[in-house]
Design a protein around this nucleic acid. Sequence first.
DNA 1: ACTTTTGCACTGACCAGTCAGTTCAAAAGG
DNA 2: CCTTTTGAACTGACTGGTCAGTGCAAAAGT
Lengths: 223, 223
Amino acid sequence: MTAHRTVPVTIRAMESSNAPGGAGGGRREATRQKLYEAAVTLIAEQGFSATTVDEIAERAGVAKGTVYYNFASKSVLFEELLRHGVGLLTASLRDAADRSAEGGGSRVDALDAMIRAGLVFIDRYPSFTQLYVAELWRTNRAWQSTLMVVRQEAVAVVEKVLREGVEEGELSDEIDIGLTASALVGMVLVAALDWKAFQPERSLDDVHAALSRLLQGRVGGNR
Amino acid sequence: MTAHRTVPVTIRAMESSNAPGGAGGGRREATRQKLYEAAVTLIAEQGFSATTVDEIAERAGVAKGTVYYNFASKSVLFEELLRHGVGLLTASLRDAADRSAEGGGSRVDALDAMIRAGLVFIDRYPSFTQLYVAELWRTNRAWQSTLMVVRQEAVAVVEKVLREGVEEGELSDEIDIGLTASALVGMVLVAALDWKAFQPERSLDDVHAALSRLLQGRVGGNR
DNA sequence: ACTTTTGCACTGACCAGTCAGTTCAAAAGG
DNA sequence: CCTTTTGAACTGACTGGTCAGTGCAAAAGT
């Protein structure tokens, strides 16, 4: 039932298909990138099932056969896209946290830096974010396990900072780390998606300031 | 090409097909309810496009034709489902806010009550919530305008309380009402969905407490 | 009382169209 | 030369929507 074609996945295939993130693309990698970009916007707009492989190929400016030369199936293309995107986000979050720590900032500063990193990511890849949110809590899907793994990787970065904050006494030891991390992610996610969807003209700084205020509990009390 | 039966739609017809919301269900309304319930879980699990009308009919224990007898199309069924569900949520939020106000609580108390109402709603209708989140930011869809309208109704309830809080000096007048409302909604939404998806055994009070703490800025500082 | 008619709600087989996936011969490319 | 891409053809399964017909309870007729 699977591919019985001639199974391309040869040895040299591995050579040119460098790991995601590899800059200088072989022809292969460039094609994959184009397919990712085409797929992400289409699936974000229409959903996975409503998006046809023909559409993806057309938008990528590539023949349908090429899609199946590069990916075993539509699902596999999507799964690798998911891994690719969340990988970028996770790296970005980790980077923001580390940078803030190196700069001698507090843990709350680190959280704030991560909020900004999240906003920057969503600003740059709104379609991916949207697609991710749409799929995250869906059950009974082929890529559910993949999704859970990458989600955990991303959330873990936030949880780590929270945990360190608690250990050092900067944050209350009564907070629920897992839930608080979820809530923070949700705060950024929804605020940012609403921003891009309904008020795209606003500046990132503006949005960041509002979320920052909420994070630091400067909502109640009029000064 | 239309009905050549004998063209029914008489006066008596209006009697049995009561308007949506009519309590004592006619046969019609009961069927629609069954279809809603079947559709909401299926679409939450698989997405709109991946869910077939045959599946919906089967799960509702009804023939396919009945679906089209009650709804003009698959899309219309979905749209009415959306309106129905968000209507419930909005009413619940408003109720929580009003109740809190009557009880002489502060605006923050009202927000807290709304957070709880949101959690209760998601606890009761996790599938609907999941489906709603998956569709909310999607563009180029037939029901996009419907979605925006109902979203605004729900968010407006939160915004109203925030605005009142600012006017009365209980909340900082520097907060961005729209963004803060989005962020609060996101906080509850994501925390609750993660709760139901990954730790369904936890109690609602537990989750509520964690979010409450975040709302009131009792995160920083190891009291 | 009883028969007959009406028309609402529902049925399910059916149709026309669509799609993911496959295959392949030939061209491009490096 | 060997890899990669092309593009068109094909298939087998599936889908949204249609429609002629059924069942039945209330209304009308007698």
